[in-house]
Write a protein that binds this DNA or RNA. Structure first.
Length: 495
RNA sequence: GGCCCGGUCGUCUAGCGGUUAGGACAUCGCCCUUUCACGGCGAAGGUCGCGGGUUCGAAUCCCGUCCGGGCUACCA
């Protein structure tokens, strides 16, 4: 049984690179019929950020991931918050101490800082010099009696090498003497990541650990811990980092990096999941547009790549357009409505069309709004674009392209064209796409136009105020005769 | 500085000893079409970081080198 986990620390809103490792774990679980566990590693009380937990769970949900065990759902290996498991870590640290695989260190932060400073100045390799490792039992005892605070450090083997098989990079080797005696228990009694993570992964029966590349250097420490406890280690797979356009690790200065930032910007969770999965993973065939389910079907650790990839926002935008187009009319309606009511994106909020869309959702028939959205569906890349794109369907006070109007103003046939159409529209209740086409053909012939475009372009302008948009007959059918009549008349007077 | 990991079109990638090095985004052109888009077709774009080997044959294997990244906390 495959059991994987996503083990974030609630120190901020998940970054796309971080949530991507959650995705890889999730995909492996779903592919194999295994379990996906979410465990919150809240052992650093100083860095804990309020609201981070909500963002973590929300990011997961937004991308479509569900977890079998963890916050909100519980599970057989509860608790899933490390802050509620401190006793377990203390016991395990004690086991290590008794077995001589760990030791108490009384060095203060100041002493450590000084030591590192000395190492830097003398160009020596930095790292703990293990000065407390060989303290006599009496010394340790007297330090404790004196009330000196201490940490528990892992006693790394001083010789030999630690080798582990990384599922994406193959064999990785570290010389033990070059690996630091990692702090396992802090002086405040809380465990560090290294101890808590290994203990929990074992106790919660995790079989595969897919995590970021930044962990690769601490894996030998983890291997030694597994060995010291006499536990079999899980399969390790280190996914490559995501880089910004300049080649450095993706960070704030590259713009948006939080997963949920993309929701604010009008991206679909399915598109973001699809896109980030493809940085560092490939289904090994030519498919690129995949649903979460399809990715799960195709997932394999062997598809993971060792080299880092650049986050290309342009490709994400293209992919988002593809995912938007795949939405059913009903889903489209709900998705746009939900986006509009939820987003706090500044740029979106200030655009005037946004109020119009909001009113449309509140006051116009759902069928009508849905059809308007559907007509713009194929030319929108971001959800926020619907407001401006659909504006003319929802208000009579839509913006008008005067520059385009100037071009048709000079043509003598336009007023007659509009009149003809107005007359023919008069007592009609509704019109189909084909009827609209026939009507325009009829009027165009009556006015004596050679090219149908001579009629179509000015009509589009009068009806929508712009030169681009959905097919004319589609939009005419949706607008309906009455509204068209008014707009034609109004535009005529404007000419 | 030390240790570790990486390196295929601008970008994401396929490739795992023999391919005209394939696909996708972006770019450009054509087609479709009433416009914009969507879609279709096509073009351009890669001395597979570089240098040595091994081999009849190397993007694929080995060594070196350069460049990039990660780690080097009582953070995760």
């Amino acid at each position: 049984m495959v059991r994987v986990r996503y083990a974030p620390s609630p120190t901020g809103s998940p970054h796309v690179g971080n949530i991507r490792t959650a995705l890889f774990n999730y995909l492996l679980a779903r592919k194999t019929g295994g379990q996906f566990v979410v465990r919150i590693e809240d052992t650093d009380r100083a860095r804990e950020v309020h609201g981070a937990l909500d963002d973590i769970l929300e990011s997961l949900r937004w991308l479509g991931m569900t977890w079998d065990e963890g916050p909100e759902v519980g599970g057989p290996f509860a608790p899933y918050f490390q802050s509620e498991r401190t006793e377990i870590y203390r016991e395990h640290a004690q086991m290590l101490l008794e077995a001589g695989r760990a030791y108490k260190c009384f060095c203060t932060s100041d002493v450590l800082d000084e030591m590192r400073e000395y190492q830097r100045i003398n160009k020596l390799p930095t790292g703990y010099d293990r000065r407390c490792r060989n303290l006599s039992a009496e010394q340790v005892q007297s330090n404790i009696v004196a009330g000196m605070p201490f940490v528990v450090r892992l006693a790394m083997p001083l010789e030999g090498t630690t080798v582990f098989e990384d599922a994406v990079r193959g064999k990785v080797e570290y010389e033990n003497k070059l690996v630091d005696d990692q702090v396992l228990m802090k002086s405040d009694g809380w465990p560090t990541y290294h101890l808590a993570n290994v203990v929990d992964d074992h106790l919660q029966e995790i079989t595969h650990v897919i995590r970021g590349e930044e962990w690769i250097a601490s894996t030998p420490k983890h291997m030694v811990l597994y060995e010291a406890f006499g536990w079999p280690p899980p399969v390790f797979a280190h996914a490559p980092v995501i880089k910004g356009p300049d080649g450095s690790k993706l960070s704030k200065r590259h713009g948006d990096t939080r997963c949920l930032d993309y929701r604010e910007k009008g991206f679909l969770g399915s598109a973001v999941a699809n896109f980030i999965a493809l940085i560092g993973w490939s289904p090994k065939d030519d498919r690129e547009v995949l649903s979460l389910h399809e990715m799960a079907q195709a997932f394999a650790i062997e598809g993971l790549q060792p080299s880092p990839g650049v986050f290309d926002i342009q490709k994400l935008q293209w992919m988002n357009g593809v995912h938007i187009r795949a939405l059913s009319p009903d889903d489209l309606y709900h998705t746009v409505q939900e986006f509009d009511s939820r987003t706090q994106d500044e740029e979106y909020l200030v655009q005037p069309e946004r109020e119009i869309l909001r009113k449309a959702f509140a006051e116009l028939p759902r069928g009508y709004v849905t059809q308007a959205l559907v007509l713009e569906q194929e030319r929108v890349k971001l959800l926020g674009e619907f407001a401006a794109a659909c504006e003319f369907f929802f208000t009579e006070d839509f913006s008008f392209d005067d520059a385009a109007a100037a071009k048709w103003r000079e043509k003598g046939h336009v007023p007659r064209l509009f009149d003809g159409l107005i007359t023919r529209l008069q007592d009609r209740e509704s019109l189909t796409h084909d009827e609209c086409e026939a009507l325009v053909g009829e009027v165009s012939d009556a006015v004596g136009l050679e090219k149908r475009a001579e009629a179509i372009h000015p009509i589009r302008l009068a009806l929508t105020g712009r030169t681009k948009g959905p097919g004319l007959f589609d939009l005419m059918a949706l607008l309906g005769p009455a509204r068209m009549g008014e707009r034609l008349a109004r535009t005529k007077s404007r000419f």
